[in-house]
Amino acid sequence: TRVETATETAWISLVTALHLVLGLSAVLGLLLLRWQFPAHYRRLRHALW
């Protein structure tokens, strides 16, 4: 049971790290898009909202 718990903890930390990385890359990508294509971003936002 001790090994299982350790594996579970490792998986949880791995998944958390993955989610953090994905979230950060998504935010960075959005910022980059907004910085590179302001007109396109505004049009996209206008279409979405």
Rank of each mutant, 00 (worst) to 15 (best):
L14W: 12
A39V: 10
S25M: 05
L31E: 01
V21T: 12
V3F: 04
T7V: 13
A26T: 13
A6P: 04
T9V: 11
E8Y: 07
I12H: 12
E4H: 07
T5N: 00
R34H: 03
A6G: 14
F37L: 11
G23A: 15
S25H: 04
R42H: 07
Q36P: 03
V21D: 03
L30F: 11
L22A: 14
T1Y: 10
W35Q: 05
G23R: 00
S13A: 11
T5P: 02
L20I: 10
L14S: 11
L33T: 03
L48T: 05
R45G: 04
R34T: 06
Q36A: 13
L33F: 12
R2F: 10
L22G: 09
H19P: 09
L22M: 12
F37V: 05
F37P: 01
R2M: 12
V15Q: 08
Y41P: 02
L30Q: 01
L44W: 09
L18R: 02
H46P: 02
R43T: 09
R43C: 08
L20A: 15
W49T: 01
A10H: 05
I12Y: 13
L32D: 01
L44I: 10
W11G: 08
E4V: 13
F37N: 03
R42I: 08
A6S: 15
P38V: 08
F37D: 03
W11E: 08
R2D: 08
L48G: 01
E4F: 10
R42A: 10
E4L: 06
T5M: 04
L32T: 07
R45I: 06
T7A: 07
A47H: 08
L28F: 11
Q36G: 11
L32R: 02
R2W: 11
A10V: 11
H46S: 05
L20W: 13
L20C: 15
W49M: 04
T9M: 11
P38D: 06
E8C: 08
F37Q: 01
L20K: 00
H40K: 15
L14K: 07
Q36W: 11
A17I: 11
A39C: 06
A39W: 07
L28H: 01
V27K: 01
L18N: 01
A47E: 04
P38G: 10
I12T: 15
T9Q: 09
L22T: 05
E8A: 11
A47I: 06
R45C: 04
A17E: 03
L24Q: 03
Y41A: 13
L18E: 02
G23Y: 03
F37Y: 15
E4N: 08
L14Y: 12
E8F: 05
H40E: 06
L30I: 12
R42L: 08
E8D: 10
T16K: 04
H40W: 08
H46A: 05
I12A: 09
L18P: 02
V3S: 01
Y41S: 07
P38R: 14
L22Q: 01
L48A: 04
G29Y: 01
T16S: 13
H40A: 10
G23S: 08
S13M: 06
L28T: 14
V15L: 11
L30A: 12
R2V: 07
T1Q: 08
R42Y: 13
L24I: 10
L14P: 06
E4K: 06
R45Q: 04
L31Q: 03
A6K: 09
F37H: 05
L14I: 10
T1E: 06
R45T: 08
W35K: 15
W11N: 12
V27F: 11
L20Q: 02
L14E: 05
R2I: 13
L14T: 13
F37E: 01
L30V: 09
H46R: 06
A47P: 03
T16N: 04
G29K: 03
L31D: 01
Y41N: 01
V27T: 07
R42G: 09
S25A: 15
V3E: 00
L33G: 02
R45Y: 05
R42M: 09
L28S: 13
F37R: 05
L24M: 15
A47S: 06
E4C: 05
A26L: 15
A10F: 10
T1H: 13
A6I: 06
A47D: 04
H19V: 12
H19M: 13
T7W: 08
